[in-house]
Design a protein around this nucleic acid. Structure first.
Length: 649
DNA sequence: TATCCGTGTCATTTC
DNA sequence: CGGAAATGACACGGA
């Protein structure tokens, strides 16, 4: 219904403009109010269907990943995005565009010097059109093809049928211009284009109002006027047929003129183009998100097809001493293809069957060291271990050594590093369960932190092996055993738990419960295992949560900037529309005055324009009616008041 | 020394 | 009902 009302309003406005050519007075305000009312309903109506649109679906579609539904910022974020989409679907105010399009044609035919701005708009408008074409390619629901788009835009703008030939012309020129330019214009430029367009159109209106400028068309119009003036008031009944005839003539002229007028093309296309670009600025974000999602999927997929896990599996199957022996050789042979962390994990895999060695090594730990480390905050240890999340820490860790290459994976910050730690996933997958861990545990691909993959397991028996090459390479940096061990790692070590934090956190629930039940852990150990698992998962959740929050803030900032630009553009268009309407109103008044001044009443006297007006009926009949002044009603009101007073007296 | 930022952890809620 | 996820709040360390 809203669309139908808009079309109806636009049609009426068109009729109004055409009638204004012959001096028919029309109440513009009523049309305007009738036109903008649906917009207000759409924008502000609390009962609007837009308001009730379930945009939770948009979370997944637009951002490429599922966002937690509880986040209030995201609610506002998506609400803002939805409002912006509504604004885009509304497009620019159609009436001034359509109106100006015709008037530009008038200017271009009369004074070519005035057509400068309109021709200068060609490039801008083309950019808008081009971008609209891109938009159409991106979202085929709204705009299937760039060529058809112009045809579809035309009725939206003014309901003018494409069969008049203007559409075909526009389409051809559209294609030519699309070939010329490939780059979409920025939003500001297009907004400027729209402004220029309307300014030029406004100039056209003023030019039409200007007697000096409208000289050539005045001759033509004067012929119509002379025909009209040949009528007397007694012949006013025949005015209807005459007006209809003149309207048909005018329509034909205008149609033919439009088919040859470039400015009209600009005017009609630019509004769509501007919004196409305005929406195009919004689109890259979802596209980027989608690409990111695809990249994540690829990364996840690569985790399954990566050769490293297979190698790790094979190595893990070896007896533990073999792995120890392999560590040095293979590490030197591969030259960093397999970093030390991998062997660390592999060594850890062998620990399960070698509890005696582990226990022996655990006894070698200096309790004082544990106390010191435990007294220290786990944060410093954790943060210095390259752990978690910030890109800065990632860069730091990644620049230190090959070991850190696995550690630099922040939670979703870099898709590049997302694919790297998949080795860790597969290692533990092969260790704990044939179940695919990427589905059972790391289902949150968007923000899964690889930090835990890279946390060193309890590999004290191989500490010497691990440190040996590193000490040769990097003597300045802190020792890895000091950097890597988190508080929970130390606790697990002190409690003789033969699992790394990474394993404890990432193993499936069933596996974890089996571990708790099947290894004869003491209640303290069980409690510690549960705490480690809980803290580890919560740490990941916190990282994801912060990442989401940052993304939401970034998105909202972009949305605010875009809405700000949109608001400024709409304000400019509103100003121009007001000026245009004022000029058109003056023009209509002037034409009506001229017409009435040249008409004669029964006694042969000219009609007083102050006392008569032209009224257009729904069937196109134009009649001269006396002006109903409010003063009359007030006078009658005064009379009734006087009568009342007299009655009272 | 104050402040900001990143991070880990806990408590709580929701699914 | 228990686990996982999400998130606010707090504390801590580093810049």
């Amino acid at each position: 219904m809203q669309i139908a009302k808009k079309y109806l309003s636009e049609g009426l406005i068109q009729l109004t403009i055409l009638l204004s050519l012959i001096g028919v007075r029309v109440d513009i305000d009523s049309y305007l109010s009738g036109y903008y009312t649906p917009l207000i309903e759409i924008n502000l109506g609390p009962s609007s269907a837009y308001t009730q649109t379930p945009f939770h679906n948009l979370r997944d579609n637009l951002d490429g990943y599922s966002v937690h539904p509880k986040c209030p910022e995201l609610d506002y974020f998506f609400a803002s995005r939805r409002l912006l989409d509504e604004v885009r679907t509304l497009g620019s105010p159609r009436f001034p565009t359509q109106l100006n399009a015709w008037l530009v044609h008038q200017v271009s035919t009369t004074d070519k010097a005035d057509s400068g701005p309109s021709t200068s708009n060609n490039t801008n408008t083309n950019s808008g059109l081009e971008s609209t074409g891109d938009e159409a390619r991106d979202d085929s629901e709204h705009l299937p093809e760039s060529g058809q788009e112009v045809c579809q835009t035309s009725p939206v703008l003014g309901g003018r049928p494409c069969s008049t030939g203007a559409c075909g012309f526009l389409k051809e020129e559209d294609d030519a211009k699309v070939k010329e330019e490939d780059k979409p214009a920025p939003l500001a430029q297009l907004a400027h284009s729209s402004t220029l367009e309307q300014e030029s159109l406004l100039e056209g209106i003023t030019g039409l109002s200007d007697p000096a400028r409208q000289h050539p068309p005045t001759i033509d119009i004067d012929q119509h006027w002379s025909n009209l003036l040949s009528l007397s008031v007694t012949d006013l009944d025949d005015l209807d047929s005459l007006v209809t005839e003149r309207l048909s003539d005018l329509d034909t002229d205008i149609t033919g003129a439009i088919s040859q007028d470039v400015s009209l093309h600009d005017a009609m296309v630019s509004s769509a183009g501007v919004f196409g670009v305005a929406s195009e600025r919004v689109e890259p974000r979802p596209v980027t998100q989608q690409q990111r999602t695809l990249f994540r999927l690829e990364s996840t997929g690569s985790s399954h097809s990566d050769a490293s896990p297979g190698m790790a599996v094979g190595l893990a199957a070896l007896p533990f001493p073999s792995v120890c022996n392999l560590t040095g050789n293979v590490n030197s042979a591969l030259g960093g293809c397999l970093d030390e962390a991998v062997f660390d994990q592999i060594n850890q895999l062998g620990l399960e069957g070698l509890d005696t060695q582990l226990m022996g090594s655990l006894e070698c730990i200096d309790p004082q060291v544990l106390e010191d480390l435990d007294s220290d905050s786990g944060l410093s240890l954790e943060s210095s271990s390259g752990g978690p999340v910030s890109p800065g820490s990632s860069e730091m860790s990644s620049s230190s050594s090959s070991y850190c290459e696995d550690e630099c994976g922040a939670t979703g910050y870099s898709s590049e590093v997302d694919s790297v730690p998949s080795k860790g996933i597969m290692d533990y997958n092969t260790t704990w369960s044939p179940v695919d861990l990427s589905e059972s545990v790391w289902h949150d691909h968007s923000y899964s932190s690889p930090a835990f993959f890279n946390q060193p397991s309890v590999t004290l028996p191989h500490k010497g092996i691990k440190e040996e090459p590193l000490s040769d390479v990097d003597d300045d940096g802190p020792r890895f055993d000091d950097r890597e061990l988190s508080r929970d790692e130390l606790r697990a070590r002190s409690m003789c738990i033969p699992f790394s934090v990474l394993q404890i956190v990432n193993m499936p629930v069933e596996e974890f419960l089996e571990v708790l039940d099947g290894h004869g852990f003491s209640p303290e150990q069980v409690t510690l295992l549960r705490d480690i698992r809980r803290r580890g998962k919560n740490k990941l959740a916190a990282q994801n949560c912060r990442k989401r929050k940052l993304d939401a803030i970034t998105g909202l900032q972009e949305e605010v900037e875009m809405l700000h630009a949109q608001r400024n553009k709409l304000l400019r268009e509103k100003q121009l529309t007001a000026k245009t309407m004022g000029a058109v109103g003056q023009q209509i008044k002037q034409l009506t005055r001229d017409l009435l001044a040249r008409l004669r009443d029964d006694s042969g006297r000219p009609l007083n324009p102050e006392r008569f007006t032209l009224q257009c009926g729904a069937n196109g009949r134009v009649v001269v009616q006396p002006v109903r002044r409010p003063a009359v009603s007030t006078s009658t009101g005064n009379k009734t008041d006087k009568r009342k007073k007299e009655k009272k007296q």
